[in-house]
Design a protein around this nucleic acid. Structure first.
Length: 444
RNA sequence: GUGGCUGUAGCUCAGUCGGCUAGAGCGCCAGAUUGUGGCUCUGGAGGCCGGGGGUUCGAGUCCCCUCAGCCACCCCA
């Protein structure tokens, strides 16, 4: 009988314990931060009716959609982001939930595009959105969440780039080119990649601007400098456009409020060149870059939308939110060698030292677990040296060793592998001395 | 979805012009007088050379197909 070659599909991956533990650690930290702002968890199905998913988004997302017929002949698709499911969810449940509604959602999404570094066909997004309010406070809070989130994950060197779509839309309005925002934004998004001339060409050819208009748009998109300086430079460009002025005002208020809320000025940058590809954003937009690896792309992006769920309900639901790309972030951290790769989640290993003492070891391990420690018992009475070697490789901080000598006095040795030092600790009172010792020295 | 580059041990890679039984380092397993790991020494396991087909007396090496990874486009987390 021939063996089936074990393999995974392009863009789909296995996760080994070392990576998976880093992944779960980030998820836990993300949840903690989301909750600290009052966002509540939700979940939705991976599979949706195709008509739900194909409504918005446009051709590109349609092409990337995994779609098929289910066993009952229904046309269905795998979700490609968490925003469309949120829209459907909100249309169905907002009556019970009330507004403003703040939710977070960690979920796997699927896109049938070509995989690359930091881009996969199956990946996890960590979304957080506030819907049902137009207040700029919600926009400001998104920046705070991104800020706290990255710090909680242990990333110090990052920068949140923000922009406001109304600024550019105001300018286009004056040119009577409001219907071209999509192509214009898509062209501008490429500015750092393909350069000014190529973008100008695309603006004229794909978006139909005159070269004079393209020049104006490019001047706008090329503004850079400190936040104050950008705000100053934008003023004359949007003057006369109500929408543009409103966008500028929102940018200014966001920057000021974030500073007041403790987001360092070096971590929030107005960047008029960012646009976000998705057409449904109408106000603030966000992208987040790692200072040490900007080429991996934005690891946390989002924006404000006027009407999230217009396809599914007549009730207008404005909102603002963003999404942490967990797998892209993980790829970046791996590349930057910032991933702590432990191979075990346990605090302590109990050595199977004396083969007649199995019951004692099992009892001690159970007592330690009841005290809140994660404990693994070595399964074979091998030589102690080998057990220590195993514990060291797996990354256990401590090994508990007890033989006749220790049991005679009802104590154990607790060996700290990194330093090689051993402590003698009492096993009385359900080993509480050991529990306290390990807990006090646990690194968060 | 389009185009380019790459694929040899768990990992990083060498392998000449097509020619002996496919190699190295690291890692892994075992041992070096039966209560203490990391260093050292000795030994060992582990490869259908990504998969399939073709050319040839002979293919890891050349050609075609396919799968996967990376890069660019597109798009985006």
């Amino acid at each position: 009988m021939s063996i089936i070659q074990p393999r995974t599909l392009q863009g789909f991956r296995d996760f080994l314990p070392d990576v998976m533990m880093a992944r779960e650690s980030i998820m836990e930290r993300a949840r903690t931060v989301f909750r600290s702002f009052g966002f509540a968890p939700i979940d939705t199905p991976a599979l949706e009716y195709l008509e739900i998913l194909t409504g918005k988004g446009g051709e590109e997302t349609d092409r990337q959609l995994y779609r098929f017929e289910d066993h009952g002949g229904r046309k269905v698709g795998l979700r490609f982001d968490l925003t469309v499911p949120l829209a459907r969810f909100a249309a169905q449940h907002i009556g019970q939930l009330g507004t403003p509604f703040k939710r977070y959602h960690l979920g796997t999404v699927w896109r049938g595009e070509r995989a690359q570094r930091g881009r996969y066909r199956e990946f996890m997004q960590c979304d957080f959105d506030t819907i049902g309010t137009t207040s700029l406070v919600a926009d400001i809070e998104i920046v705070q969440v991104i800020h706290d989130l990255l710090l909680a994950i242990g990333i110090e060197r990052f920068r949140v780039h923000i922009n406001n779509r109304k600024v550019l839309n105001g300018l286009l309005e004056r040119f009577e080119l409001s219907d071209r925002t999509g192509p214009v934004l898509r062209a501008l998004d490429k500015l750092p990649k393909i350069g000014r001339e190529a973008v100008e060409q695309e603006l004229c050819e794909a978006a139909g601007l005159s070269s004079e208009q393209a020049e104006r748009v490019l001047t706008l998109a090329e503004i850079h400098g400190s936040n104050e300086s950008i705000l100053e430079q934008l003023e004359p460009l949007v003057a006369g456009s109500q929408r543009g002025e409103a966008g500028l005002d929102e940018l200014r208020r966001t920057v000021e409020a974030c500073a007041a809320a403790g987001v360092g000025t070096d971590r929030l940058q107005i960047d008029v060149s960012i646009a976000r590809g998705l057409d449904y954003y109408t106000g603030t937009v966000y992208e987040t870059f790692l200072t040490d690896l900007p080429t991996i792309g934005s690891i946390c992006s989002g924006g404000r939308y006027d009407d999230l769920a217009s396809l599914y309900t007549k009730q207008q639901l404005p909102g603002v939110g963003a999404s942490l790309g967990l797998d892209r972030l993980l790829a970046a951290l791996d590349e930057l060698k910032l991933l702590e790769k432990a191979h075990t989640p346990a605090d302590l290993m109990v050595a199977y030292f004396d083969k007649t003492r199995l019951h004692d070891y099992l009892r001690i391990a159970a007592e330690l677990r009841r005290g809140g420690l994660a404990v693994e018992c070595y399964p074979e009475p091998k030589k102690l040296g080998q057990q220590l070697k195993y514990a060291d490789r797996k990354g256990f901080p401590y090994v508990l060793i007890a033989g006749d000598r220790e049991f005679a006095e009802n104590v154990c040795q607790l060996k700290h592998l990194a330093s090689g030092r051993s402590e003698t600790l009492s096993l009385e009172n359900r080993a509480e001395a050991v529990i306290r010792f390990v807990r006090e020295r646990a690194v968060s």
